[in-house]
Design a protein around this nucleic acid. Structure first.
Lengths: 145, 145
DNA sequence: CACCAACGTAGTATTCCGATAGGATTTTGC
DNA sequence: GCAAAATCCTATCGGAATACTACGTTGGTG
Protein backbone atom coordinates (compact mmCIF):
# COMPACT_ATOMS: atom_id res chain seq x y z
CA UNK A 1 0.00 0.00 0.00
CA UNK A 2 2.97 2.21 -0.41
CA UNK A 3 5.42 3.14 -3.12
CA UNK A 4 8.84 1.52 -3.09
CA UNK A 5 11.93 3.69 -2.63
CA UNK A 6 12.85 2.88 -6.18
CA UNK A 7 9.61 4.36 -7.43
CA UNK A 8 9.85 7.31 -5.09
CA UNK A 9 13.39 8.16 -6.15
CA UNK A 10 12.50 7.79 -9.80
CA UNK A 11 9.60 10.18 -9.43
CA UNK A 12 11.67 12.71 -7.54
CA UNK A 13 14.35 12.72 -10.21
CA UNK A 14 11.82 13.00 -13.00
CA UNK A 15 10.11 15.92 -11.31
CA UNK A 16 13.42 17.72 -11.22
CA UNK A 17 13.96 17.00 -14.90
CA UNK A 18 10.48 18.25 -15.68
CA UNK A 19 11.19 21.52 -13.90
CA UNK A 20 14.21 22.07 -16.11
CA UNK A 21 12.50 20.99 -19.31
CA UNK A 22 13.35 21.63 -22.07
CA UNK A 23 16.80 22.65 -20.98
CA UNK A 24 19.79 20.47 -21.73
CA UNK A 25 21.03 17.32 -20.14
CA UNK A 26 21.34 16.97 -16.39
CA UNK A 27 23.70 14.48 -14.81
CA UNK A 28 22.62 11.73 -12.47
CA UNK A 29 25.08 13.04 -9.91
CA UNK A 30 23.40 16.45 -9.84
CA UNK A 31 19.93 14.98 -9.61
CA UNK A 32 21.07 12.82 -6.73
CA UNK A 33 22.49 15.83 -4.95
CA UNK A 34 19.44 18.03 -5.48
CA UNK A 35 17.12 15.43 -4.03
CA UNK A 36 19.55 13.84 -1.61
CA UNK A 37 19.49 10.38 -3.13
CA UNK A 38 22.13 7.62 -3.41
CA UNK A 39 23.77 8.27 -6.73
CA UNK A 40 24.51 4.75 -7.89
CA UNK A 41 21.05 3.52 -7.02
CA UNK A 42 19.52 6.43 -8.87
CA UNK A 43 21.57 5.62 -11.94
CA UNK A 44 20.00 2.21 -12.26
CA UNK A 45 16.56 3.77 -11.95
CA UNK A 46 17.25 6.38 -14.60
CA UNK A 47 18.48 3.62 -16.83
CA UNK A 48 15.17 1.81 -16.50
CA UNK A 49 13.34 5.00 -17.30
CA UNK A 50 15.41 5.50 -20.39
CA UNK A 51 14.63 1.97 -21.52
CA UNK A 52 11.00 2.72 -20.88
CA UNK A 53 11.36 5.65 -23.25
CA UNK A 54 10.67 8.33 -20.68
CA UNK A 55 14.19 9.73 -20.82
CA UNK A 56 16.90 10.40 -23.34
CA UNK A 57 20.51 10.17 -22.33
CA UNK A 58 23.83 11.33 -23.58
CA UNK A 59 27.10 9.68 -22.67
CA UNK A 60 30.39 11.40 -22.02
CA UNK A 61 31.48 14.76 -20.75
CA UNK A 62 28.58 17.19 -20.80
CA UNK A 63 26.14 14.30 -20.98
CA UNK A 64 23.26 13.41 -18.73
CA UNK A 65 19.52 12.83 -18.90
CA UNK A 66 16.48 14.74 -20.04
CA UNK A 67 12.82 13.95 -20.65
CA UNK A 68 12.10 12.38 -24.01
CA UNK A 69 8.92 14.45 -24.40
CA UNK A 70 7.05 17.32 -22.80
CA UNK A 71 5.87 16.90 -19.19
CA UNK A 72 2.25 17.22 -20.27
CA UNK A 73 2.63 14.12 -22.40
CA UNK A 74 3.96 11.93 -19.62
CA UNK A 75 1.48 10.27 -17.31
CA UNK A 76 2.39 9.53 -13.73
CA UNK A 77 0.60 6.20 -14.05
CA UNK A 78 2.88 5.07 -16.85
CA UNK A 79 5.92 6.14 -14.88
CA UNK A 80 4.91 4.30 -11.75
CA UNK A 81 3.96 1.15 -13.56
CA UNK A 82 7.38 1.15 -15.15
CA UNK A 83 9.18 1.79 -11.89
CA UNK A 84 7.24 -0.47 -9.60
CA UNK A 85 7.99 -3.58 -11.61
CA UNK A 86 5.76 -5.70 -9.45
CA UNK A 87 2.57 -4.58 -11.11
CA UNK A 88 -0.03 -6.53 -9.16
CA UNK A 89 0.48 -10.26 -9.36
CA UNK A 90 -0.22 -12.24 -12.47
CA UNK A 91 -3.76 -13.23 -11.51
CA UNK A 92 -3.44 -16.67 -13.01
CA UNK A 93 -6.56 -18.18 -14.49
CA UNK A 94 -5.81 -20.56 -11.64
CA UNK A 95 -7.27 -23.93 -12.47
CA UNK A 96 -10.88 -22.78 -12.23
CA UNK A 97 -11.40 -23.88 -8.63
CA UNK A 98 -11.13 -20.87 -6.33
CA UNK A 99 -12.11 -20.86 -2.69
CA UNK A 100 -14.69 -18.28 -1.64
CA UNK A 101 -12.01 -16.30 0.11
CA UNK A 102 -9.84 -16.22 -2.96
CA UNK A 103 -12.71 -14.94 -5.05
CA UNK A 104 -13.29 -12.16 -2.55
CA UNK A 105 -9.63 -11.14 -2.40
CA UNK A 106 -9.51 -11.10 -6.15
CA UNK A 107 -12.41 -8.70 -6.30
CA UNK A 108 -10.76 -6.39 -3.81
CA UNK A 109 -7.55 -6.37 -5.78
CA UNK A 110 -9.40 -5.57 -8.97
CA UNK A 111 -11.21 -2.66 -7.39
CA UNK A 112 -8.01 -1.34 -5.89
CA UNK A 113 -6.05 -1.41 -9.11
CA UNK A 114 -8.94 0.19 -10.96
CA UNK A 115 -9.08 3.02 -8.47
CA UNK A 116 -5.35 3.65 -8.33
CA UNK A 117 -4.93 3.44 -12.07
CA UNK A 118 -7.68 5.95 -12.51
CA UNK A 119 -6.01 8.44 -10.20
CA UNK A 120 -2.53 7.98 -11.59
CA UNK A 121 -3.47 7.91 -15.24
CA UNK A 122 -5.30 11.21 -14.86
CA UNK A 123 -2.17 12.87 -13.52
CA UNK A 124 0.51 14.25 -15.82
CA UNK A 125 4.02 15.30 -14.98
CA UNK A 126 3.07 18.84 -15.90
CA UNK A 127 0.35 18.90 -13.28
CA UNK A 128 2.75 17.54 -10.70
CA UNK A 129 5.24 20.30 -11.41
CA UNK A 130 2.51 22.94 -11.21
CA UNK A 131 1.53 21.65 -7.83
CA UNK A 132 5.12 21.71 -6.65
CA UNK A 133 5.57 25.26 -7.87
CA UNK A 134 2.44 26.43 -6.11
CA UNK A 135 3.50 24.71 -2.92
CA UNK A 136 6.92 26.32 -3.22
CA UNK A 137 5.49 29.81 -3.65
CA UNK A 138 3.24 29.27 -0.69
CA UNK A 139 6.16 28.18 1.42
CA UNK A 140 8.11 31.25 0.41
CA UNK A 141 5.17 33.57 1.11
CA UNK A 142 5.00 32.21 4.62
CA UNK A 143 8.31 33.80 5.45
CA UNK A 144 6.91 37.29 4.95
CA UNK A 145 4.04 36.91 7.36
CA UNK B 1 0.75 -1.85 -4.07
CA UNK B 2 -0.35 -5.25 -2.94
CA UNK B 3 -1.91 -6.79 0.13
CA UNK B 4 0.28 -8.78 2.52
CA UNK B 5 -0.38 -12.47 3.03
CA UNK B 6 -1.46 -11.64 6.52
CA UNK B 7 -4.16 -9.34 5.22
CA UNK B 8 -5.17 -11.75 2.51
CA UNK B 9 -5.51 -14.66 4.90
CA UNK B 10 -7.47 -12.58 7.36
CA UNK B 11 -9.91 -11.53 4.67
CA UNK B 12 -10.34 -15.06 3.43
CA UNK B 13 -11.13 -16.34 6.89
CA UNK B 14 -13.54 -13.52 7.58
CA UNK B 15 -15.37 -14.15 4.33
CA UNK B 16 -15.90 -17.73 5.39
CA UNK B 17 -17.21 -16.59 8.75
CA UNK B 18 -19.55 -14.16 7.04
CA UNK B 19 -20.95 -16.91 4.88
CA UNK B 20 -21.85 -18.90 7.99
CA UNK B 21 -23.19 -15.96 9.90
CA UNK B 22 -25.02 -16.01 12.23
CA UNK B 23 -24.32 -19.63 12.88
CA UNK B 24 -22.24 -20.71 15.84
CA UNK B 25 -18.54 -20.70 16.40
CA UNK B 26 -16.11 -22.03 13.83
CA UNK B 27 -12.67 -23.23 14.77
CA UNK B 28 -9.49 -21.78 13.39
CA UNK B 29 -8.46 -25.24 12.28
CA UNK B 30 -11.55 -25.60 10.10
CA UNK B 31 -11.16 -22.15 8.60
CA UNK B 32 -7.56 -22.96 7.78
CA UNK B 33 -8.58 -26.17 6.10
CA UNK B 34 -11.40 -24.64 4.08
CA UNK B 35 -9.14 -21.98 2.67
CA UNK B 36 -5.92 -23.93 2.65
CA UNK B 37 -4.02 -21.68 5.05
CA UNK B 38 -1.32 -22.36 7.67
CA UNK B 39 -3.26 -22.92 10.86
CA UNK B 40 -1.03 -21.33 13.45
CA UNK B 41 -0.37 -18.28 11.36
CA UNK B 42 -4.08 -17.87 10.86
CA UNK B 43 -4.66 -18.08 14.60
CA UNK B 44 -2.50 -15.06 15.24
CA UNK B 45 -4.41 -13.15 12.61
CA UNK B 46 -7.79 -14.10 14.05
CA UNK B 47 -6.53 -13.01 17.42
CA UNK B 48 -5.75 -9.57 16.08
CA UNK B 49 -9.19 -9.37 14.54
CA UNK B 50 -10.76 -10.26 17.84
CA UNK B 51 -8.81 -7.52 19.55
CA UNK B 52 -9.99 -5.18 16.84
CA UNK B 53 -13.51 -6.14 17.80
CA UNK B 54 -14.39 -7.76 14.51
CA UNK B 55 -14.66 -11.24 16.00
CA UNK B 56 -15.87 -12.93 19.14
CA UNK B 57 -14.21 -16.06 20.36
CA UNK B 58 -15.01 -18.89 22.68
CA UNK B 59 -12.37 -21.02 24.31
CA UNK B 60 -12.54 -24.73 24.94
CA UNK B 61 -14.33 -27.63 23.36
CA UNK B 62 -16.98 -26.46 20.98
CA UNK B 63 -15.35 -23.05 20.85
CA UNK B 64 -14.10 -21.04 17.92
CA UNK B 65 -14.67 -17.69 16.25
CA UNK B 66 -17.62 -15.79 14.85
CA UNK B 67 -18.27 -12.28 13.65
CA UNK B 68 -19.07 -9.80 16.38
CA UNK B 69 -21.74 -8.13 14.21
CA UNK B 70 -23.62 -8.55 10.97
CA UNK B 71 -21.59 -8.60 7.74
CA UNK B 72 -23.38 -5.49 6.50
CA UNK B 73 -21.99 -3.56 9.44
CA UNK B 74 -18.39 -4.48 8.82
CA UNK B 75 -16.45 -2.43 6.28
CA UNK B 76 -13.65 -3.99 4.32
CA UNK B 77 -11.65 -0.81 4.79
CA UNK B 78 -11.71 -1.15 8.56
CA UNK B 79 -10.69 -4.76 8.30
CA UNK B 80 -7.76 -4.09 6.03
CA UNK B 81 -6.51 -1.15 8.03
CA UNK B 82 -6.50 -3.37 11.08
CA UNK B 83 -4.74 -6.22 9.34
CA UNK B 84 -2.20 -4.26 7.36
CA UNK B 85 -0.80 -2.57 10.44
CA UNK B 86 1.51 -0.35 8.45
CA UNK B 87 -1.11 2.28 7.71
CA UNK B 88 0.82 4.63 5.43
CA UNK B 89 3.89 6.18 6.97
CA UNK B 90 3.72 8.90 9.54
CA UNK B 91 4.06 11.75 7.07
CA UNK B 92 6.15 13.78 9.45
CA UNK B 93 5.68 17.52 9.38
CA UNK B 94 9.31 17.16 8.25
CA UNK B 95 11.14 20.32 9.26
CA UNK B 96 9.38 22.52 6.71
CA UNK B 97 12.02 22.18 4.01
CA UNK B 98 10.90 19.67 1.42
CA UNK B 99 12.58 19.16 -1.91
CA UNK B 100 10.38 19.55 -5.00
CA UNK B 101 10.44 15.82 -5.52
CA UNK B 102 9.30 15.15 -1.99
CA UNK B 103 6.40 17.52 -2.38
CA UNK B 104 5.35 15.71 -5.53
CA UNK B 105 5.59 12.26 -3.98
CA UNK B 106 3.59 13.47 -1.04
CA UNK B 107 0.80 14.62 -3.31
CA UNK B 108 0.73 11.28 -5.08
CA UNK B 109 0.53 9.41 -1.81
CA UNK B 110 -2.32 11.56 -0.64
CA UNK B 111 -4.28 10.98 -3.81
CA UNK B 112 -3.64 7.27 -3.65
CA UNK B 113 -4.76 6.82 -0.07
CA UNK B 114 -7.85 8.90 -0.74
CA UNK B 115 -8.77 6.72 -3.69
CA UNK B 116 -8.13 3.40 -1.99
CA UNK B 117 -9.86 4.41 1.22
CA UNK B 118 -12.87 5.46 -0.76
CA UNK B 119 -13.12 2.10 -2.49
CA UNK B 120 -12.54 0.04 0.60
CA UNK B 121 -14.75 2.03 2.92
CA UNK B 122 -17.64 1.73 0.50
CA UNK B 123 -17.38 -2.05 0.52
CA UNK B 124 -19.04 -4.12 3.25
CA UNK B 125 -18.50 -7.73 4.10
CA UNK B 126 -22.06 -8.42 3.03
CA UNK B 127 -21.37 -7.13 -0.46
CA UNK B 128 -18.26 -9.25 -0.65
CA UNK B 129 -20.19 -12.37 0.24
CA UNK B 130 -22.87 -11.55 -2.30
CA UNK B 131 -20.25 -11.27 -4.97
CA UNK B 132 -18.71 -14.57 -3.97
CA UNK B 133 -22.08 -16.27 -4.04
CA UNK B 134 -22.88 -14.94 -7.48
CA UNK B 135 -19.48 -16.00 -8.75
CA UNK B 136 -20.03 -19.45 -7.26
CA UNK B 137 -23.40 -19.87 -8.94
CA UNK B 138 -21.96 -18.78 -12.21
CA UNK B 139 -19.16 -21.26 -11.90
CA UNK B 140 -21.64 -24.02 -11.19
CA UNK B 141 -23.86 -23.04 -14.09
CA UNK B 142 -20.91 -23.37 -16.43
CA UNK B 143 -20.82 -27.09 -15.87
CA UNK B 144 -24.22 -27.52 -17.50
CA UNK B 145 -23.37 -25.82 -20.75
C1' DC C 1 -10.12 -34.98 35.05
C1' DA C 2 -9.36 -35.39 30.30
C1' DC C 3 -9.69 -33.17 26.23
C1' DC C 4 -10.19 -29.29 23.35
C1' DA C 5 -9.40 -24.94 21.45
C1' DA C 6 -8.18 -20.21 22.03
C1' DC C 7 -4.30 -17.45 23.88
C1' DG C 8 0.61 -16.15 24.07
C1' DT C 9 5.60 -15.87 23.10
C1' DA C 10 9.60 -16.75 20.96
C1' DG C 11 12.20 -18.17 17.48
C1' DT C 12 13.34 -19.56 12.51
C1' DA C 13 13.21 -19.31 7.67
C1' DT C 14 12.95 -16.90 3.58
C1' DT C 15 12.17 -13.41 0.63
C1' DC C 16 12.90 -8.90 -1.09
C1' DC C 17 14.47 -4.26 -0.99
C1' DG C 18 17.78 -0.76 -0.86
C1' DA C 19 22.20 0.00 -1.73
C1' DT C 20 27.15 -0.67 -3.16
C1' DA C 21 31.14 -2.47 -5.90
C1' DG C 22 33.51 -2.54 -9.77
C1' DG C 23 33.90 -2.23 -13.89
C1' DA C 24 33.00 -1.59 -19.52
C1' DT C 25 31.63 1.64 -23.04
C1' DT C 26 31.06 5.91 -25.34
C1' DT C 27 31.68 10.81 -26.01
C1' DT C 28 33.74 15.35 -25.13
C1' DG C 29 37.47 18.59 -24.38
C1' DC C 30 42.08 19.82 -24.60
C1' DG D 1 44.59 10.92 -29.52
C1' DC D 2 44.41 10.51 -24.91
C1' DA D 3 42.60 11.59 -20.55
C1' DA D 4 38.52 12.80 -18.23
C1' DA D 5 33.62 12.45 -17.83
C1' DA D 6 29.59 10.47 -17.91
C1' DT D 7 26.34 6.68 -19.01
C1' DC D 8 25.80 1.83 -19.17
C1' DC D 9 25.86 -2.94 -17.15
C1' DT D 10 26.12 -6.97 -13.90
C1' DA D 11 26.78 -8.99 -9.62
C1' DT D 12 26.35 -9.15 -4.99
C1' DC D 13 25.40 -8.13 -0.04
C1' DG D 14 23.33 -6.80 4.39
C1' DG D 15 19.42 -6.12 6.83
C1' DA D 16 14.77 -5.64 7.60
C1' DA D 17 10.35 -7.17 7.01
C1' DT D 18 7.34 -11.16 6.04
C1' DA D 19 5.72 -15.64 6.51
C1' DC D 20 5.57 -19.35 9.21
C1' DT D 21 6.61 -22.92 13.22
C1' DA D 22 7.26 -24.72 17.92
C1' DC D 23 5.90 -25.05 22.19
C1' DG D 24 3.68 -23.92 26.09
C1' DT D 25 -0.40 -21.80 29.00
C1' DT D 26 -5.06 -20.73 30.06
C1' DG D 27 -9.70 -21.51 30.28
C1' DG D 28 -13.98 -24.03 29.23
C1' DT D 29 -16.72 -28.49 28.24
C1' DG D 30 -18.32 -33.00 28.65
Amino acid sequence: MKLSKRTEYGLRAVVQLARLWPRTFVQSKDLAQQEGLPNKFLESILLALRRGDFLESKVGSGGGYRLSRAPREISVGDLIRRLEGRLTVKEEASASELSPGEVAVRLINERLTEATDEVLDAMTLEQLVEHVTRAGNLQQAMYYI
